[in-house]
Amino acid sequence: MDTFAIGNLMRRPEAGAILSLIAVIAFYVIFGGVNLVNLFGAASWVNFAANLGIVALPLGLLMIAGELDISIGAMIPAGSMSIAIVSGYYGMPIVVGMAVALGLGVLVGLVNGLLATRTTVPSLIITLGTLVAMQGIVLAGSVLLTGNASVPLSAPDWAKTIFGQLLGGSYQIIIVWWIALTALFVLIIHYTPWGNWVFAMGGDKESARNAGIPTNKVTITLFVLSAVSASFVGMCGAILFNSAQVSGGMNYIFNAVVSVVVGGVLLTGGFGSVMGIFFGTLTFAIVNQGIYFTDIDRNWSSLIIGVMLLLAVLMNNSFRKLAMTARPKKKPA
């Protein structure tokens, strides 16, 4: 029975991510002398994971559907700058700032989605364009409007409580958002017809369309989701830190893609899981932030991430093959 359960786990998309997580922790304990109690008690990597995770989830869904969105790198500062400019610099109510930040996400997501569905240009190129364009808009716009590349913001208490408080003194409230969103996405992607469509589109968009799936609508929705999530993360950051900068966010692109791929999502689409993306993000966060808890010089962390990425992808490949070929054990007749 036990071996059966393990065999089943191996065939799931998140298998590689869970094993990577265990391997990374083991590596840090053995070679880095990490004290597990300190590591698990620390907020730094959980905060890091939550911010990254909220961006990685919709990006992962886009990748399952066979698309990619790198404009998230510009949408994070765009989200934080727009709320800071509207509610900080111009002193409008915080809800207006939020509406502008999230509305900007909807707008950029629509542009990405419409371009991706109306043209045959790969979404990597489309979102590369919107990434750079949004960077320009954010920088030029904030200098034009405020004369500054950094804008302060003081949010009212209720907004702080919901989007920007520190629980227990060090845990960002965004962790709660991340877990809630993960649960919501698990439900949508794995338990509703809509989720089935996302996988079908990643497997074969043409067949999916012929089967009556509104592929354009789903694609556009996913792009909107991705851009809004990124500006949401930026918005929460501005509320938490009482200020916004035009820089930053670019790291999120690679970090999120690595998390998603480590999480077992197939780059060409059609395979993956929300829990996989969740564990992939956790693994990435522990590698990236956990290194501070080790005796290892932190300059090595990129090397570790690279090796882990390759190992995880190789593992995911063999697990996927296993999932395809192995048939579950015969039920007793």
Binding site: N196, W197, A200, A208, G270, A323, M324
Partner: peptide, 11 residues
Amino acid sequence: LMTIGRSFFVG
């Protein structure tokens, strides 16, 4: 990469 049941009912 979809299961028999899921792909049978796509759409």
